[in-house]
């Protein structure tokens, strides 16, 4: 009874809440890191060093007037932010934060569930996330959001192909689709997949930037071109949901990248006995540290690079990344067959 219902429920509650807190603090982190890159201080007023800024933001967004444009498609307009938020959250169901640990005399695995098709689940849930953006653009009944949502969905669909192809090469290496087993395969193979699959790693990272609509691929919300992008007509809490969904997606991308390419919860050089003293740091901390590195790079890229133009982005996706990913996949397959 406890194993079947109580523990999974507890895990879900913990992970969901942790994610939401992480998402709101990701906003603060981004503002702080970009501020440092630009020789500013960032938020400093709310709490010491601005650490209560997310709370202030949330309060502000919640008490703001929630406007629905008169000619908008009411139901779809309301559903769109929810549709974009939910997939970002349910992906965490399969992300492993650590191996099985014993907690109060009970064996508990540090992931909500470990399904056989974990990786495919991540991809398919991510593919549903595009609906939020398309529908927001459509339901607003306004030109800028429509243009932005077309850009966004075309971008998401094209980059999903490249990203999924890189995942296939990882699956070839690991021989499994389960997230936990992929980490185990990296332990047994004595190497992180980022080192054996550098091309896949790079393509995945660029694809992840594009799929999460982050700079330099943030066309859908390019403020300078399309005012606010697909959420131009949104305000208050519904806008906040879009905002949070974007950051939640960034965190998801970081977690997936960590799991697939950086050995998930494994400490550096997990097979070297000399470094066993590193074991005093719990496994989930390693996971968080690695994810944090990814988050930092996401922000760093945003502070540094200009934005691609829409057609250039498409060209990069279809003419560079996808062929590269396919070539990588073929080479991986051939090498794998030759070695076995």
């Amino acid at each position: 009874m406890i194993d079947q219902f109580v523990i999974p429920l507890l895990k879900i509650v913990i992970v969901l809440n942790a994610t939401l807190v992480a998402v709101s603090y990701m906003v603060l982190l981004e503002r702080k890191v970009i501020a440092w890159a630009q020789s500013r201080l960032g938020p400093m007023r709310v709490g010491p060093y601005g650490i209560l800024q997310p709370v202030a933001d949330a309060v502000k967004l919640m008490i703001k007037e929630d406007i629905t444009p008169v000619r908008a498609d009411r139901w779809v307009f309301t559903a769109a932010p929810i549709i974009s938020m939910v997939p970002a959250l349910i992906v965490y169901a399969v992300i492993p934060f650590g191996p099985k640990v014993s907690l109060f005399g009970r064996q508990v695995s540090l992931s909500i569930t470990d399904v056989n098709v974990g990786l495919l689940y991540v991809v398919s849930v991510a593919s549903v996330g595009v609906y939020g953006i398309i529908l927001a653009g459509y339901a607003s009944n306004s030109k800028y959001p429509l243009l932005a949502s077309l850009r966004a969905s075309a971008q998401l669909i094209s980059y999903e192909v490249a990203v999924t192809l890189t995942l296939v090469s990882v699956v070839l290496m690991a021989g499994t689709l389960s997230m936990v087993s992929i980490v185990d395969a990296q332990y047994n193979g004595r190497v992180w997949f980022a080192f054996v699959q550098p091309v896949a790693f790079v393509v995945f990272f660029i694809g992840a930037l594009a799929e999460t609509n982050r700079a330099p691929f943030d066309m859908p919300e390019a403020e300078q071109e399309l005012t606010g992008g697909f959420h131009t007509e949104y305000s208050g809490m519904r806008f906040a949901l879009f905002f949070l969904a974007e950051y939640a997606n960034v965190i998801v991308a970081s977690s997936v990248a960590t799991t697939l390419f950086l050995g998930g919860w494994l400490r550096p050089f997990p097979n070297v006995a000399m470094l066993r003293f590193l074991g005093f740091i719990p496994s989930w901390t390693w996971f968080l540290i690695k994810s944090f590195v990814f988050l930092y790079i996401f922000i760093w890229v945003r502070a540094t690079l200009p934005r691609y133009r829409y057609d250039q982005l498409m060209r990069l996706g279809w003419k560079v990344l996808i062929p590269l990913a396919i070539a990588n996949l073929v080479v991986t397959g051939i090498v794998k067959v030759l070695l076995s």
Binding site: A126, S127, V128
Partner: peptide, 15 residues
């Protein structure tokens, strides 16, 4: 049939 289920979402719903 979890594989089919996921593919159903990926290909039909998502694509």
């Amino acid at each position: 049939a979890p594989f089919l289920a996921v593919i159903q979402v990926l290909v039909y719903a998502g694509g």
